[in-house]
């Protein structure tokens, strides 16, 4: 038992270093992805055909191809055509673009779910479209977006592990390295899974707390 204990003690601090990176990537990517989701979700509903079409192309392109393929494409091909980005930039940008494309569907769905009467009430009060959007639609659509965005956040934590494949020393990267160098394969992978679970679970709890505060209560009740 002594040896088990000491190996854990030896491994954990190094894994936690990686975990900090994983959390950092997640927290850096999430707002960018959310912003992209909002922009693309709104663009798809635009009355300017070119804007809506551009959004469709973006969303279908990133939803239709695999995240890992996108990551390798950005990592290996972009430098060849003269775009030099650091692995971090490449990783965060690709994750954000990928999750933004999925998120845009959440945004679109939530906006379309706001009852039509709310928009009409705003129009007969002579609000310009931008105000209808900002002051009537978005405040009512946001609570409906929270639960699916929460799920996406957990998916994002998991997806950050792919960045270990483009040389970023996140939790997965550190774990794989430790498994090879220490030979403590079982121990390392079990610890890896536990730490990922802890991160994801913490975020889930945080999102649930948010939902409780800003939850759907205030809006959905009135389909009238």
């Amino acid at each position: 038992m002594e040896t088990l204990f000491t190996t854990v003690i030896a491994l954990v601090p190094r894994l936690l270093d990686g975990a900090v990176t994983t959390v950092a990537i997640t927290l850096l990517t999430a707002p960018v992805a959310a912003l992209l989701a909002l922009i693309a979700g709104l663009a798809r509903l635009s009355h300017v055909k070119a804007v809506a079409a551009a959004a469709v192309v973006y969303v279908e392109l990133f939803r239709g191809t695999s995240l890992l393929v996108q990551l390798f494409f950005m990592f290996y091909v972009l430098p060849l055509i003269g775009i030099e980005l650091s692995p971090w930039t490449t990783g965060v940008a690709t994750l954000a673009l990928n999750f933004g494309s999925y998120g845009s569907e959440i945004v679109r769905g939530a906006l379309l779910a706001v009852p039509r009467g709310q928009i009409e009430a705003a129009l007969v009060l002579h609000m310009p479209p931008s105000q209808v959007l900002r002051r009537v639609l978005l405040p009512q659509a946001l609570p409906a977006m929270l639960p699916p965005f929460g799920n996406q956040l957990v998916e994002l934590v998991k997806a950050t592990s792919l960045l270990s494949l483009i040389t970023i020393s996140d939790l997965a990267f550190v774990g794989n390295a430790l498994a090879q160098t220490t030979g403590r394969v079982t121990m390392v992978y079990v610890l890896l899974l536990l730490i990922y679970f802890a991160i994801a679970y913490t975020l889930t709890l945080a999102v649930r707390a948010l939902e409780r505060r800003y939850g759907t209560g205030a809006t959905v009740a009135g389909a009238r």
Binding site: V154, V157, K158, A159, S161, L162, S164, A172, G175, N176, A179, V185, T186, Y189, L192, L193, Y196, F197, A200, Y201, T204
Partner: peptide, 18 residues
Amino acid sequence: EFVRSTPLLIQIFFIYYV
């Protein structure tokens, strides 16, 4: 809950190496 909240990549390594 557990499998859903942990990365597929690590699960693949786990099955392959462990």
